[in-house]
Nucleic acid binder design. Structure first.
Lengths: 226, 226
DNA sequence: TGGCTATTTCATCATTTCTTCATCAAAGAT
DNA sequence: ATCTTTGATGAAGAAATGATGAAATAGCCA
């Protein structure tokens, strides 16, 4: 699950992002409206945490632009002001929930779970491809109904590939989603390739039948032998 | 057993919560309807203690929403008014029992036990895994039919793991369920790990055969050696 | 209060996972 | 066919995570 945190206090952003990553979400941050919108448009998120008070373009404007573009991602707004007027304004614009600063991390997590459940409640928690089944709830993966032991990174990587099945995914995209902010776009290492290799090995994907290499682009999880 | 107390008097909430924790329940509290619903939806409880008089959304509304969402958790309603009308209204919505304020703690505990017994009487009170048997009623644990002496926290932890057998459970999840509100998400201590260690020792789980470590996530109680 | 037990914290060690790097293999271009 | 670019692989060091023993603190009961 990808979550974007939009707040002008870097420490708060970092703290929330770190907590979310510990919960196995993929968390990105943005310090102002334009940066946030750019990230959202370039690749959609599952949830957006949006502070009302932002320099330049404020939270309401960001929310308004989002909805105007037809992006229906759930938005959890953070507010220091407790006025009803703000609340109403946000609701009109399509905010999904509110949280007043200061808040406890426990409460934030509870709201996030509630919003994600609400928006995803029709979807199953199992991603299946060929003889592989990945359960996003229990974080377990089965190969021919036998559990496979994946490391956290391997799991997230496979989850992301399956989530985008039959679509070629660039390494940059993978890094962005699976590693989030914690990834260095200038690294020369072939870190991702190594994880792909390990995944293939564990999934007995000897000929790269399931995780296909897309030359010059990246990788793809393939359903059918086309 | 997780119990949620919904009342707008913080002292009463705290007092009940403390009493329940002494009885080895996991008790959370909520001061108003929305906060309560949030908690209930984000993770179900075994019993809900609900005051009728709440600021904003009253107890009946909360109960109505719960049942509308298909949540069948037993609800014990607290009421200061003794009217028959209220009683009928609550029963229509699916309240399971009533208690008139002021009440004695002893009576509250008796009702709680009765409700929990009633809601769990069809299900067995024994959780068995490998050569370990845990009885949720008597709070006793047997290893090869020999009683094992577990502390309250150890028991709750094992109970929770067994209740979620063959599912990887995160430390956060464990903390949330076994410690409830009384847990600090920012603690740096490895408290849970220590309890796991002690459990393994007492259960003679030398190679971590029963309580398995799920790297990067948490722990899992494993049935079969797959 | 004092003594007992349970719980939490802390420091350290052990293990697993992640990243990097060097080298080899494969695909595409000329 | 050869060259260039891109991907695959094995191994080693770095980093992160978990296990453990012991000490400190908190909670309970007489």
């Amino acid at each position: 699950m990808r979550i974007l945190i939009i707040d002008d206090e870097p420490e708060l952003c970092a703290q929330i992002a770190q907590t979310l990553r510990q919960q196995n979400y993929t968390a990105d941050t943005a310090g102002d409206g334009p940066a946030a919108l750019e990230k959202i448009f370039s690749d959609p998120y599952d949830l957006i945490i949006l502070d009302i008070m932002l320099p330049g373009k404020d939270g309401f404007e960001v929310l308004g632009e989002l909805r105007a573009e037809g992006i229906a991602t759930p938005v959890l707004m953070l507010t220091a002001k407790g006025e009803v007027a703000d609340r109403v304004k946000g609701l009109d614009l399509g905010a999904d929930d509110y949280l007043h600063k200061p808040f406890s991390i426990a409460e934030l997590l509870a709201r996030i779970r509630a919003l994600l459940r609400r928006s995803h409640e029709q979807s199953s928690s199992s991603l299946v491809i060929a003889n592989i089944r990945l359960d996003t709830n229990t974080r377990m993966v089965f190969l021919n109904d036998e559990p496979v032991n994946l490391t956290p990174k391997e799991f997230s990587l496979l989850e992301f590939l399956l989530y985008n099945r039959n679509r070629a995914i660039s390494r940059f995209n993978i890094a962005e989603h699976v590693w989030g902010d914690a990834f260095d776009p200038f690294t020369m290492s072939n870190n991702i390739d190594v994880h792909i290799k390990n995944l293939r090995k564990k999934l007995d994907d000897q000929a790269g039948k399931i995780i296909v290499t897309v030359w010059g682009i990246g990788y793809m999880a393939k359903d059918e032998p086309f």
